[in-house]
């Protein structure tokens, strides 16, 4: 990031761009200020149905029940990003870290704490801010810390077992969502009696998949291919 800054664009063009973008910013600001001063949005509907959603935290209810389909596709986006990164075959992207004593002992200390925090966030999501994404990213951070400390996945687990863990979120969503169609329901329509349990199942597998995907994205290449080459 040395001298590759703004040198390629002449000053006159930059000024013109600034003027154009200022006009755009004024338009955007005007649009925001013209919005109705108060609006409940969908909060009324969200609260009305909270008792049959299986959880008491409305954000979790939206993510894993009302709009669970979005969450399903979004787990697909995460998996897809990993497929994309692996398909690049990024040879020069591996991190060659030699952890010092500080990183080494800190990771020993932090990783168990992160796992615990992640478990708490997962559980708390049902009634308070938290849930699969928060838990998954904390767990993913533990994975990144392990990678930085020089840990690598066991060669025997790098193939199919790792791949199964990565697709777990998408696969369980697709499977359970589809099974719920059979008794005459709709895709991802949870019977209220089982909604709480199903949401916990989804959140657990999503947490694992998200954490492992984030760690794998940080690693940058398919560990199985790394060994082969």
């Amino acid at each position: 990031m040395n001298n590759t800054g703004e040198n390629t664009i002449p000053l006159s063009l930059r000024l013109l761009l600034m003027v154009l973008l200022t006009v755009m910013a004024v338009g955007l600001a005007y649009a925001v200020l013209s919005l109705p001063a108060q609006a409940p949005g969908l909060s009324v509907y969200a609260v009305e149905n909270i008792n049959i959603s299986g959880v008491s935290n409305p954000v979790t209810a939206v993510l894993l029940n009302y709009r669970a389909y979005d969450t399903f596709l979004e787990l697909g986006v995460l998996l897809l990003a990993l497929l994309g990164v692996w398909s690049l075959g990024c040879a020069g992207c591996q991190h060659q870290s030699s952890p010092g004593p500080v990183l080494d002992s800190l990771s020993r200390l932090l990783v168990p704490i992160l796992i615990m925090v992640s478990g708490y966030l997962l559980w708390a999501g049902a009634h308070a801010p938290g849930g699969a994404f928060q838990a998954g990213s904390v767990l993913g951070a533990a994975g990144v810390l392990l990678l930085l400390a020089g840990w690598r996945i066991h060669a025997g687990l790098a193939g199919l077992p790792l791949r199964i863990a990565l697709v777990l979120g998408v696969a369980v969503f697709a499977l359970v969502g589809a099974v719920l169609i059979l008794p005459g329901g709709q895709l991802l329509a949870f019977p209220p009696a089982y909604a709480g349990g199903l949401i916990l199942l989804f959140e657990t597998v999503a947490t694992l998949s998200i954490a492992i995907s984030l760690t794998a994205l940080f690693l940058g290449a398919d560990p199985d291919e790394e060994d082969a080459s």
């Binding site: 969908l42 509907y45 969200a46 149905n49 029940n65 009302y66 709009r67 669970a68 389909y69 329901g185 709709q186 895709l187 991802l188 329509a189 949870f190």
Partner: peptide
């Protein structure tokens, strides 16, 4: 999807 219907 999910049996809720728009807008929720």
């Amino acid at each position: 999807v999910g049996g809720w219907g728009a807008p929720l």
